[in-house]
Write a protein that binds this DNA or RNA. Sequence first.
DNA 1: CTCTTAGAGCGAACCGTTTCGCTCTAAAGT
DNA 2: ACTTTAGAGCGAAACGGTTCGCTCTAAGAG
Lengths: 343, 343
Amino acid sequence: MAATIRDITKMTGLSLATVSKYLNGGNVLPENRTLIEHAIKELNYEVNEVARGLAKNRTKTIGVLIHNLDNIFAGTIIAHIEDILRQHDYGTIVCDCRGDIDLEEQEIKFLLSKRVDGIITIPTSGNSKYLDSVVSRGIPIVLIDRTFEDKRFDCVLVDNSEASFQAVTTLIQKGHEKISIVCGNDNEYTARERLLGYYKALENNNIKIDLDFVKRGSLTVEHGYEATKSLMTVTNRPTALYLTNYEITLGAIIAINELGLSFPDDVSIIGFDNLMLSKVVKPTLWMVVQPMEEIATSAAHIMLKRLQDTNQSSTTNDTVTEREAVRVSLNTSLLTGNSIKQL
Amino acid sequence: MAATIRDITKMTGLSLATVSKYLNGGNVLPENRTLIEHAIKELNYEVNEVARGLAKNRTKTIGVLIHNLDNIFAGTIIAHIEDILRQHDYGTIVCDCRGDIDLEEQEIKFLLSKRVDGIITIPTSGNSKYLDSVVSRGIPIVLIDRTFEDKRFDCVLVDNSEASFQAVTTLIQKGHEKISIVCGNDNEYTARERLLGYYKALENNNIKIDLDFVKRGSLTVEHGYEATKSLMTVTNRPTALYLTNYEITLGAIIAINELGLSFPDDVSIIGFDNLMLSKVVKPTLWMVVQPMEEIATSAAHIMLKRLQDTNQSSTTNDTVTEREAVRVSLNTSLLTGNSIKQL
DNA sequence: CTCTTAGAGCGAACCGTTTCGCTCTAAAGT
DNA sequence: ACTTTAGAGCGAAACGGTTCGCTCTAAGAG
């Protein structure tokens, strides 16, 4: 049905090799160039990327594996990654593992079977073994948001510890000492880092750590909700809550509302990641915000760089100068609001 | 590097054709079956989907083209589409046209160059001409959320007019007559339908239409914000606002907050699509909610059906019984809250 | 005027599958 | 015992590109 390169050779009298050379930006005689371009227009020819992919052993396709596509963090990340990749002619295949380790491993296999040229992912598992098959195929990987003990992968992170430190220090400066943190479990990289910053800030101000104020759990609305309810319905209440992700922040606000309490009068709060929420909730929220767009563009650019490298190293056949893994660390910012009471 | 079918023939002594037949579920002698399966395990063989795609002229890949991936509607839709497609071994390539008609056309071309087997899209353009090239290639299309005058495409819609009718009727039943609608422009299908339902509800109750209360504009936070400010700062204020999408709802709430007003005391409101907001805002919001998961699964299933059909019609070479376009219409629901005052 | 050389063009092999139509074997039918 | 016949196996030709290494031409060097 669709025209092929062979139709062009027939129309122009040139050979396969020459037409192919033209299509790949090689030099051809001006007269032949005209001939080919005319034929392409006439036949409505378009390169078959599948055939090209077979010959070149690449698909111009990147896999993006993320948990919970249906949240703003994931959506923003994907939107920006897709934008940059497409401009370089790469397609973006998305997968959502919904925070399930087994599904994550399965989807990596799926992406490999689709022969993606690279994978960008927010890892769910704490152990990088499931990525071995990707590494052994020489497919570049870029991690976002989380990383592994072994430093073998490129990654784009934010300084979670520093973000927490700033947030909690702010609370302390406003006179708070009974500060609670609602965070993820210790097996999650970001949760550990955010907790670390919390500890640091307290220690830095000689405030003793009260473990009743550390509420670990899943990164869900439910956890934020339950933790807040249990914190606010005992006699030894915190005066401030540090809520360490989007869903937790949401759950906490719902709980506060349901309890008939209000911030900042009954309790001060700093939330996380929920830029929209910060505008729409009254009074406005203090908020730690991550540079999501920068995270995405940074990851995409690292990936493009790696792809370029592997292309070159396949032509120039020198020793595989396995470059060090790149590690980009970005800064969060602290959005001011009216959700903290000066004590 | 990776094992191919030929490696298996060498190891088993069988022919290419036989191994291929096995891989595609054909019958082989039990002893040969064992032989092949052993070789596959031994060699760590995996089908090269690119080569297969070339031979079969399909990629097992679907393009999903949507505006603004970074909102919850898009995220939820994509998450569920991806889930279903992957279970049928289809990859999901996403594209975000950001509501730009030119970009939309460009991205359709991009998806075609990636040789997707089908396209699911929320159209941005009001004219379906940019999809002609897809149709002429015989690639199935499923529209979500919006449709075109010509009924040539499968589509999954919600009954926007009915949704508006219910929402506005509810306001009227609670004693409101001065009801304003903040909606999209007339060139958008959903905006027209939602406005239609609003008119119907008013007429149905013999309330005369006040065009000052119809605020058309873009589907953005800004429009919601500006419209609300202008509505609430004149003498002839509405007593209720019907906010016809997620962003507009957001903008309106911000505006109300900034004006120092509060709902439902100063003005009653019904929002749209913002399930999360409905929980977190105090008092809780009345809200029109779309069955997003159902929309996505429905679209994915229609697509799978079409793909199956085209597969069959390519084997059985009978006349192309071009089936009628499918049109699925789903119902919205009205979430009750405390944002409407009984007059 | 001859020799060198850059670079355009070409033929053929290759990428890893599928598939058509043929051969061959062995069980079933008479 | 002889003929059908079902169905497993096979060879070879696609699918639509890229690429290696060769030939050939014509411009530039001496």
